[in-house]
């Protein structure tokens, strides 16, 4: 036990470890911010966030590789595709009850992944797609030069991505908070509380839910783009339903109805998930990989027992909600 602790501490003091965790936490902050606006503020149970993430990554990569679209335009295009997909899913299933809708989103996300796996001509199948990040590599080097000029640098070259992903995530948090404080955000909360009450007061609930889903799709697509940049390739395994559920773990840890909590939850979740890599137990790699989720699960169970509203959630909203 002593030796495993020493190993763990050794790993935890490396800058490379923390920049890796930071990038993943940033990516999942974006992903889970989308879940927050859906689940925490609109009351729609979106289990398909991984699908929007996949669409973001694939659409960006395909636009860059096959159509020579400049990177930033490709990102915008990818968001457009994800939003369009969200509208199709939303218009066909948002009228359903909340639990049916969640199943529909899960199925839609799986359909996206299956498509990516099997439409080899477009997506490269299980081999995935490479070579979409030339523009990013240039930008990344440029940022690294600036950083080294002020004496900051790291071994694995993740700092530029870390900075950009968190810049985008923080901008998203600020923008979402701004929207949430607006009369528009008030209608979302009313729909979360009681859709019929909102409708009886002249609010077109379907329109607001679709907008909420579109924003979630936008954030999901952005997280997918950053995931692709982080991995340097896109392949279907990255977008298993697991991604959505890690998003939910992040959401619940941080607390419902708090955007800042999402960032906190993402940092804790990914620290845990990544730190378990350093645990030196007589276990195989797959067993260690499962252990990561056991730990996150235990943490969530503990949280539910002692602080069910999450770290930053509001207790009153939870108790009075029903």
């Amino acid at each position: 036990m002593t030796s495993s602790f020493a190993l763990a501490l050794g790993g935890l003091t490396e800058v490379g470890f923390w920049s890796g965790v930071g990038v993943l936490a940033g990516i999942y902050t974006l992903l889970a911010l989308g879940l927050q606006i859906n689940v925490g503020f609109t009351g729609i149970l979106n289990f398909g966030q991984a699908g929007f993430m996949a669409i973001g990554a694939y659409a960006m990569a395909i636009l860059v590789i096959d159509f020579d679209v400049p990177f930033l335009l490709a990102v915008l295009g990818a968001i457009g595709v994800a939003v369009a997909f969200a509208m199709v899913v939303g218009m066909s299933s948002l009228r359903l009850r909340a639990d049916y809708f969640s199943i529909a989103t899960l199925a839609a996300a799986e359909a996206v992944r299956m498509f990516a796996q099997n439409a080899q001509g477009v997506t490269g199948g299980n081999q995935g797609l490479y070579g979409f990040d030339v523009a990013w590599a240039d930008a990344s080097r440029q940022i690294e030069e600036w950083l080294s000029a002020i004496g900051v640098g790291d071994a694995n070259g993740l700092l530029p991505l870390l900075l950009v992903v968190w810049l985008v995530a923080l901008l998203a948090i600020v923008a979402l908070r701004f929207l949430q404080r607006s009369p528009w955000g008030r209608v979302l909360r009313a729909i979360r509380e009681d859709e019929d009450a909102a409708r009886s007061l002249g609010k077109n609930a379907l329109r607001f839910r679709l907008q909420s889903l579109a924003i979630a799709a936008t954030l999901g697509a952005l997280s997918g783009v950053f995931l692709a940049l982080n991995l340097s390739f896109v392949n279907p395994q990255a977008f298993e339903p697991q991604a959505s559920f890690i998003g939910f773990a992040v959401l619940i840890l941080g607390g419902l109805a708090s955007y800042g909590g999402v960032a906190f939850g993402a940092l804790i979740t990914w620290t845990l998930l990544e730190a378990t890599r350093f645990v030196d137990l007589p276990l195989s790699d797959t067993q260690i990989a499962s252990l990561r989720f056991v730990l996150v699960g235990l943490l969530l169970i503990g949280l539910m027992a002692f602080r069910p509203q999450g770290v930053f959630g509001k207790r009153q909203e939870m108790v009075l909600g029903d």
């Binding site: 008030r186 909360r189 009313a190 509380e193 009681d194 909102a198 007061l201 609010k203 009153q316 009075l320």
Partner: peptide
């Protein structure tokens, strides 16, 4: 159908 988890004033402003 009071929107319980919203303040009274927000209930009003909503409408």
């Amino acid at each position: 159908k009071a929107l319980s988890a919203m303040p009274v004033i927000d209930n009003m402003l909503l409408a």
